[in-house]
Design a protein around this nucleic acid. Sequence first.
DNA 1: GATGAATGAGCGTTCATTCAT
DNA 2: CATGAATGAACGCTCATTCAT
Lengths: 202, 202, 202, 202
Amino acid sequence: MPRAEREQLILDIAGRRFARDGYHAAAMDEIARQAGVSKPMLYAYFESKEGLYLAYIERTGQELLERLQRTFSERQAELRLHARVNEFFCFVEEHRDGWRVLFTEASASRPVAEQVAELRGRIAGALRRMIERSVAGPPDAALGPAGGEVLAHAIVGAGESLANWWLDHPEVPRERMTGYYAQVIRGSLAALAATAGPPLTA
Amino acid sequence: MPRAEREQLILDIAGRRFARDGYHAAAMDEIARQAGVSKPMLYAYFESKEGLYLAYIERTGQELLERLQRTFSERQAELRLHARVNEFFCFVEEHRDGWRVLFTEASASRPVAEQVAELRGRIAGALRRMIERSVAGPPDAALGPAGGEVLAHAIVGAGESLANWWLDHPEVPRERMTGYYAQVIRGSLAALAATAGPPLTA
Amino acid sequence: MPRAEREQLILDIAGRRFARDGYHAAAMDEIARQAGVSKPMLYAYFESKEGLYLAYIERTGQELLERLQRTFSERQAELRLHARVNEFFCFVEEHRDGWRVLFTEASASRPVAEQVAELRGRIAGALRRMIERSVAGPPDAALGPAGGEVLAHAIVGAGESLANWWLDHPEVPRERMTGYYAQVIRGSLAALAATAGPPLTA
Amino acid sequence: MPRAEREQLILDIAGRRFARDGYHAAAMDEIARQAGVSKPMLYAYFESKEGLYLAYIERTGQELLERLQRTFSERQAELRLHARVNEFFCFVEEHRDGWRVLFTEASASRPVAEQVAELRGRIAGALRRMIERSVAGPPDAALGPAGGEVLAHAIVGAGESLANWWLDHPEVPRERMTGYYAQVIRGSLAALAATAGPPLTA
DNA sequence: GATGAATGAGCGTTCATTCAT
DNA sequence: CATGAATGAACGCTCATTCAT
């Protein structure tokens, strides 16, 4: 089995353990055993337990980012928003373990927390650009200073919380979740823009 | 020094270590040393490390809840919302460690995670009741089935995210954060209610 | 409550804990609590945990010795043997805890082991004198050198083992146990005397 | 060094510490140090301190049982008895530590006590069968109900006590001990059978 | 290249014992 | 005199990490 493939396999197993047991309770022994490799292999591939965790977060975060960006080329803003939100919940649905590791098990160690924070920052950044394009004129005028960034973080946090809630209420269909979240985003945007400046364009 | 007082002191110290190092990296030895007591005292007072952690979460969560409820008697809904949001950021400002422990270090162990989840649930529940009172007619008609609960969770998540962002950007004044968050809440509410039913009353 | 009386009470409680939990698992905290005294009292009265244990062994051992000697004045050797054996099983029956502590929980620490060994030695010594009086002529001629002592230890060991077995089979009446043990003693004595010298007198 | 061999080495060391210090006072740190292995090895091999203790008891008990059974094929009952008794004292002589652990340090914990009790039960059982074969007719008629079992326990206890006494009096030659013990056994058997039924066959 | 075997370091916990009151 | 409160000192155990093969 080529190295690249084996790495993916190991990451799958490791992610499951991290999600189910938490960072500390997940033992390297167990991960190695379940992945069918020896422990020295784990260390040869990922340097350390933290390295393994970071690699998993990296991979999962990349996947999420790509998903969100894949819906980027769409024309209509409205469609775009809906599509993205939908894509977000698709990701959560398909990567429950990954989601848990990324957004509820995050604070295992300093570098891990930083990497997760960075990922959030990138998502928030993309969101901010989207927000700022959606208001007329210079964003700071429309939303207040740093308003775009603040709003972006509020929206990201709302999404995380909705996703976590959804994981505990799987009976709610994805479309409903998408609808709620899109409304929240649209409403927040409208409220902020209404207060601070001229109405939204899109 | 009376026991009650010393317990508070220990909780302060423990909270700092938990916030800075995380649950696992925080060592009982160190907590005892910094609090100026012996380790057996820690165990006499709090039973176990988990017990100490839970006690800290309990105390911090109670404080937060009381703060939010203290702003309850206000007359105007609008004032109420603003006052509560403000109180929330006051709490975050004054209890940085407590906030970190409650909302970013949560998943240390099963009982801990449950206690944190319960606290969130209570906050979300209070929020949901507030939301449902603010729409005309039966809430499910206005917001869709379970819409109140979903919206509450979205708002709680937004708040957490804003608070965390604020901790990294202390230069932003509290009033601005309060303003943003209140807008987000109002906007979300409006958007959801607008879609699903008649307009808001308050 | 006068000190002497309270000491007896404490010894009762302590003996129960030692018998039920073993020396190490019995905690001074628990003994103090059950006896209704404070821990410093325990230490004032008995110096240390080991001191408490030794005191209990001392008391219990004295009781056993006195019981065995109380049957000493009887006339007939045969009666004497039977009476003593009976008294032994009476003691076991009435002092189950004491018996357990003395003869199955013995090796807690060096001084404890020595005290128990000494008690056994005294019982064996009394037995040896009885044995040696029961053979004609000088004992070493009749039983071989040190034969009396060896036989005494064999008999003591047999008794301990029978008592322990009986504790697990309480349905067997004491008279039966007495009969068996007396037979074993008589038979052993007869066999040894027969080999080594002239027949027994009593 | 192969694992099996190292396990034996560790058991030797552990047995010495258990015999000299008792179960509780024997520290895993010290056992590991003396055995020249690290503590995790101890746990990898034996699971826990109790596991190590049980393994030692198991090994020692097996050796004792095998020794006693090895003398089984002899023709004459008389020879057989003598040979077995001799084998017993040989074992005690060669395994002083093992003997001490098995028969004076027994009550360390529930599972340990059970394992030791089971070993004693097996020895007593073998003895009982030997006893019952040595009387004419059905054993209960000859020895009274449960008489064989009772007698077996008496004899086992006598042997333990003799062995312990011998460890404190090493100047006595083994042949003498064997002679005494064999006599005690024979005498007890004769006495019991004489009382309860027809004379012995062997 | 891959592993079975091994360990250093540290953690949570307990308990006999003793002051300060 | 009696105690509530406090502690020093260990101990069993675990885990990420690394050689020797």
